[in-house]
Design a protein around this nucleic acid. Structure first.
Lengths: 217, 217
DNA sequence: ACGCAAACTTGCGTGTACGCAACTTTTGTC
DNA sequence: GACAAAAGTTGCGTACACGCAAGTTTGCGT
């Protein structure tokens, strides 16, 4: 076995997954997302329509995945990579802002299309949940063995905050009523949404640094 | 117009919604959830199948809604109802624990069925998102006008934490590897999951009480 | 090298979600 | 009280998600 522990099977699976999502995005950009049939995507990726559905459970999911894929892992890796002295809040927030600001290798036109069509918007927003697991592991590593549940909760909260920021970013315009006019730059929105969680992140960090009492009264 | 501003239209809509979800749950309990067709639910509620789909976008959603409905509003109301002196974290956590522990008017057999079938489990877990909006408004009222965005983020985080707790609660058993053996009582799980967020909730509360510096650096 | 077991793919069938356009009910206005 | 606009309901047609069981590929022990 020369290729690490990867295994042919796993590599093929990833290849199929990538082929499917790339095909989905390309076709959606070419013809417009409403003129892409599942069969087309499957054919372009060289698999049967049924197999397509083994990888993605909706067309929107496949298209969006081409943009959001691997962001999760990169963010988690970035969190792990911050120097150990860095506070947890700073590490997490910086990692997120950094990797969400980068539009990925796919151009802005993809994001434009996604943020324009409601169905794609929803899938895009829903994709935020995917960072929970890797992020939880990254936080868990920093907190040590005691903080496993805490790590999951914090990761889920961070994901939720990111989702809120993306909702604001993606939202059409402000209400004509003159109230909410948020739509700043994405980094600002992210920092703004994550800021309220900083106390929780740092508190967990402190508790790990000097473990004392349990949280229950 | 005798009935407040409710309007006949709105009342009929709610009645249909209730009829649909109650019918969905009743039929699912009677025959088992896999032997209930959408047409059956629609017929039992006295509407067309197409109308059913104007209210719920999946069968699971309708069944689960019968159990989770109005929890959202009750929790939000409970948060608002706590005396103003109470800390935000305490108010929110107590309100949630109180209303999620109560199994609602529908018996435990409904919950048993839901937590048994994977598809229903997922819908049940997914329903947690529904408290975000009312909870955000409740928190917003406590924080004052400055904290609108903060309130949304905190509400989303709380909902995420609740989801984590429910996932643990619903999860079959522990892994045979001997690691994670969580499954305590639901109240304990909820408090455990919400505890890490307490610092964030209280920090927001403090800031509103005496507004001073910004959270950065 | 061989062969078995597990994992993945595929075709088929069923039940479903949802856009669309016609029709009915409710609401506010004169 | 009548009417026009708004909101809701319904049938139809299309595309889709997914369980199931058969066929194919990969992994691994011998």
């Amino acid at each position: 076995m020369t290729t690490r522990q990867a295994g042919l099977r796993e590599r093929k699976k990833q290849a199929t997954r990538v082929a499917l999502r790339e095909a989905a995005l390309r076709l959606a950009l070419e013809r417009g997302p409403d003129d892409v049939r599942v069969d087309d995507i499957a054919e372009a990726a060289g698999v049967s329509p049924r197999t397509y559905n083994n990888y993605f459970s909706s067309r929107e999911q496949a298209i969006v995945a081409a943009v959001t894929a691997e962001r999760e892992a990169r963010v988690a890796a970035a969190v792990t990579a911050r120097p150990a002295g860095t506070g947890l809040a700073e590490a997490v927030i910086d990692a997120i802002v950094e990797h969400y600001t980068d539009p990925g290798e796919h151009g802005r036109d993809a994001l434009l299309m996604i943020t324009t069509r409601p169905a794609l918007r929803e899938a895009f927003i829903g994709a935020t949940t995917a960072i929970e697991r890797p992020l939880a592991e990254a936080i868990h590593e920093r907190l040590g063995e005691t903080g496993r549940h805490t790590a999951r909760v914090l990761a889920a909260s961070v994901a939720a905050a990111v989702r809120v920021a993306l909702e604001d970013w993606v939202r059409p315009g402000s209400a004509s009523g003159g109230l909410v006019v948020v739509s700043g730059s994405l980094p600002d929105l992210l920092r703004g949404a994550l800021a309220p969680l900083a106390p929780a992140l740092d508190a967990a960090d402190q508790r790990h640094t000097r473990p004392d009492r349990s949280p229950a009264s």
